[in-house]
């Protein structure tokens, strides 16, 4: 007991609230979900307290078709969600990278204005903003009206309820999450390093590959994680703009809890999603750690 210094005690006191909060409201539910995923579904929701491994079997292939049926469709859905999340991540990155450079070169006033504009959507509900996109994308919507008025199209493009609409919506929703961390790492780059690279003979693309990209990698990773994880679970955009024709892992989990009354299976799907995300994220974090200067 004596070995704790005053400072250590203070640290413990300072960290205690956050630790308690995370422990109760984050780790706790996670543990409950982990436990539930191994239980038998109750007839009307809830669980029966019997060990039941068929939930995982249904997804991963050892269900015997007697209690539960194995179906590849769940892995397909997981893969498709991951694909959409990956596409969203890459596209937001593509949009945000040049924008971050452009804005970081602006005057202080221009920067402030642009950052304000980028965070502006946070002030209103996502659902309302997606409804606005419905008004834009539908056949009688603004996008088609404008293109028609310009004589660029003779009949509506059929954007609404398409995968294009889903991708547009996803990019729109997640751009701020990508932009902000990216911008903060882009802005930190010392212009002299870029000059130094040029000076040492690197053409612009080489400079980008060998200096700019590695130095903004923490921002790229942070932004990618911030976009990838919520877009993996997002089902609102596919539902509203894609017409719910495509099931995402988020829809599937919602379906299990609210309609199929199969909480353990919903918990199983969530656990599988969390585990695969943890694997991906820790892989990336590991890579970043390796490449970062210790400071």
């Amino acid at each position: 007991m004596k070995s704790f210094s005053r400072q250590q005690k203070q640290l413990v006191l300072l960290l205690a609230p956050a630790t308690l909060f995370l422990g109760i409201f984050f780790i706790g539910p996670l543990l409950i979900m982990a436990v539930y995923s191994f239980l038998e579904p109750g007839l009307y929701g809830g669980v029966e307290w019997n060990f039941y491994h068929w939930n995982y079997g249904r997804v991963l292939g050892w269900a015997d078709g007697f209690y539960e049926e194995f179906d590849l469709v769940y892995l397909e859905i997981l893969a498709r969600s991951a694909g959409l999340a990956l596409a969203t991540t890459l596209l937001t990155l593509l949009v945000c990278y040049p924008a971050a450079f452009w804005i970081s070169r602006m005057s202080t006033r221009g920067k402030a204005l642009c950052l304000f504009l980028i965070t502006l959507p946070f002030f209103s509900s996502m659902i309302i903003r997606l409804y606005a996109w419905i008004l834009i994308l539908r056949d009688s919507g603004f996008a088609n009206q404008i293109l028609d008025a310009l004589g660029l199209i003779s009949e509506p493009l059929g954007l609404m309820y398409s995968s294009t609409a889903v991708v547009i919506g996803m990019i729109y929703i997640f751009v701020p999450f990508m932009f902000l961390p990216l911008y903060s790492s882009v802005e930190k780059i010392d212009g002299k390093l870029i000059q130094a690279s040029q000076d040492l003979g690197a053409a612009p693309l080489t400079t980008f590959r060998k200096v700019i990209l590695p130095l903004t990698l923490p921002g790229v990773i942070a932004g990618s994680v911030l976009v990838f994880i919520p877009s993996l679970g997002n089902f609102v955009v596919p539902s509203m703009l894609g017409g719910a024709k495509v099931v995402m892992i988020g829809n599937l989990v919602e379906q299990q809890f609210l309609y199929a009354r199969n909480w353990p299976f919903g918990a199983t799907l969530s656990m599988l999603m969390i585990v695969s995300m943890l694997v991906i994220v820790s892989f990336y974090l590991f890579k970043v750690m390796k490449n970062q200067p210790q400071s």
């Binding site: 010392d190 002299k192 000059q195 690279s197 040029q198 000076d199 040492l200 003979g201 053409a203 200096v211």
Partner: peptide
């Protein structure tokens, strides 16, 4: 000539060493 094709090299006031590379890779960059 663009900067990267000029036969001159610069030593910067702030040194401008690449923080993500070790010393060997900094010196070997060119």
């Amino acid at each position: 000539l663009p900067a990267h094709k000029r036969p001159v090299n610069t030593v910067f006031q702030s040194y401008a060493l690449f923080p993500h590379l070790n010393i060997g890779d900094n010196v070997g960059y060119g």
